[in-house]
Design a protein around this nucleic acid. Structure first.
Lengths: 128, 128
DNA sequence: CCTTGACTTTGAGCGCGCTCGAAGATGTAC
DNA sequence: GTACATCTTCGAGCGCGCTCAAAGTCAAGG
């Protein structure tokens, strides 16, 4: 996380104006760091800035906003589950395709039949 | 995948100029569809367009490019594994936080102690 | 014939999330 | 004392991946 990014997050209200040293330089407290870590974690899993802004806003308003905040997190958790699913599918598709490339390379090395088998391999069409 | 996106992919060379009906309208073959499915799958897992362009380019050049293509796929597979990891971490963090919100809501419902316990919960700092 | 609607082309525009650059104040090291 | 780095503010710019608008062509239906 760069300094620029931190400034940006402050500008857009993801973090409250942070404490300053006597010279005006920012001093991030442990609480700030924890919050930033959380933000980082959400961003790393593609939570939109807008959602994070909403969440941050509610957080300022205290416990009475628990329900909506929980909803936001639950929605994002569902999004994460969906992402994991897609990633796993892609991962296994790639495993198949990579194996196929190894076969091709093998054929090339041993000067085997240059007409490739017409790719009947993976369940998901593998379009070279 | 919208028509706009298909045009875009054609423009940037992700798909070869596709066959046309007599009237000039595009006709996507099954091979085209398979390839598009693959592209979609890679995009859905955040492969950059640039990488896909490179891959598509090599694909046009035939089997001799197998090694580099395989490398691209292996790299992306590694990226996917890393993503899954982050997503899982975030998922479990959210499980903790959501549970915490349920507790808060419980306290509110029963009119319990309004001073929240100072959040000692998750391993990852949970910064409300 | 005329409308409607789906396609075609081209280039421009947009939303997101940073990312950077300039100009200035302050701190640390020699 | 004088470099030099490091922070500050501000607004502008950028890369990515679409997304859209405008203007034109063609095919079928009423």
């Amino acid at each position: 996380m760069t300094a620029h990014t931190l400034r940006y997050y402050e500008r857009v209200g993801l973090i409250q104006p942070v404490g300053r040293a006597r010279n005006g330089h920012r001093r991030y407290s442990l609480a700030d760091e924890a919050w930033l870590h959380f933000l980082h974690c959400m961003r790393a899993t593609s939570m939109p800035i807008r959602a994070m802004q909403r969440y941050a806003e509610l957080r300022e308003l205290g416990d009475s906003t628990s329900l909506e905040r929980r909803k936001i997190l639950e929605d994002h958790q569902a999004a994460i589950a969906a992402q994991i699913d897609e990633l796993q599918k892609a991962h296994s598709l790639l495993t198949h395709k990579i194996a196929n490339y190894r076969k091709i390379e093998q054929r090339i090395r041993i000067g085997g039949p240059q007409t490739a088998e017409p790719e009947v391999d993976c369940t998901l069409a593998s379009a070279s």
